[in-house]
């Protein structure tokens, strides 16, 4: 049995206090999203809606075309996740298990570019995509998400643990390299692919600067970009803005809650081995 004493009490008081600080802004958002117009500015503040309503969400979808932004975000995020997991898995596996001259030197060079901030290439990338006619297209917003050095790094470190004997045995049995990858390797490295998928999903869903640059047309805007535009015109409509924020945050939060353990693993892999 653990000893219960003032120490335990103090510790849990601190835990609860910090948790409250962590959750209050999100809790207030969730409450305000269901308030009547103007109620969020009541004094003293209402912590819960007195007369809950869905009209803010209805307004987002009917008057303000947030449905389209939601669709844009969903399409971009799902495509980014599926494609980038596949592309990075293949590259990471090759770096780990398929020998070729200069492989490890190439990988080191690649990993050293991890420190380069994405913003450094953003202007030229925009100009390039403009030349290619990809401004305001899904393809345009997707391209920088598809291959990621960090993703390749994660997969490679994990794939190093795949047994060579297993792969060689499959080769002796006459399996082709693509078949070996699809049938043997992919199932083994599935946990790290889940980690990568979870990370990619969140970073694509939450990303702001790149979509802001490449999707200037209102119809193509993802949720964060649409929301940032909305707050310019509707800053007085607190309840409406909170409904929009909630609509944007909820999918991210849901994905996190479902895939939580994969996040923990990914952060540990990125920091300790980094």
């Amino acid at each position: 049995m653990r000893r219960r004493g003032p120490q335990t009490l103090l510790l849990h008081a601190a835990l609860v206090a910090t948790s409250l600080a962590s959750l209050t802004p999100l809790g207030w958002m969730a409450a305000a999203a269901f308030m009547q117009p103007g109620e969020a500015n009541a004094l003293p503040p209402h912590l819960l809606p007195h007369d809950p309503t869905l009209q803010n969400f209805v307004a987002l979808f009917t008057r303000l075309d947030m449905a389209r932004a939601f669709l844009n975000s969903a399409v971009v995020t799902v495509l980014a996740t599926v494609l980038s997991v596949l592309i990075n898995a293949m590259a990471g596996y090759a770096f780990a298990k398929l020998p070729f001259p200069g492989r490890d030197r190439l990988f080191k060079r690649l990993a050293s570019a991890l420190v380069v901030p994405a913003q450094v290439g953003m202007l030229p990338l925009f100009l390039l995509l403009r030349e290619l006619g990809l401004v305001n297209t899904y393809a345009g917003v997707l391209v920088p998400y598809l291959a990621s050095i960090f993703g390749i790094f994660l997969v490679r470190q994990y794939a190093l643990g795949v047994s060579d004997d297993l792969l060689d045995a499959a080769r002796v049995d006459g399996a082709g390299e693509l078949r070996i990858f699809a049938v043997i390797v992919l199932p083994i490295i599935r946990p790290i692919l889940a980690t990568l998928a979870a990370f990619t999903f969140l970073s694509a869903w939450n990303d702001f600067m790149w979509p802001l640059i490449i999707l200037s047309d209102g119809h193509m805007a993802t949720l964060p970009v649409a929301l940032a535009g909305l707050v310019g015109e509707h800053v007085q409509d607190t309840e409406l803005m909170m409904a929009g924020s909630m609509l944007t945050i909820l999918p991210a939060l849901a994905v996190f809650l479902v895939f939580q353990r994969f996040f923990v693993r990914g952060i540990a892999a990125g920091s300790v081995k980094g």
Partner: peptide, 8 residues
């Protein structure tokens, strides 16, 4: 989402 929490 950073944009959302910045608005909150």
């Amino acid at each position: 989402t950073l944009v959302s929490v910045a608005i909150i």
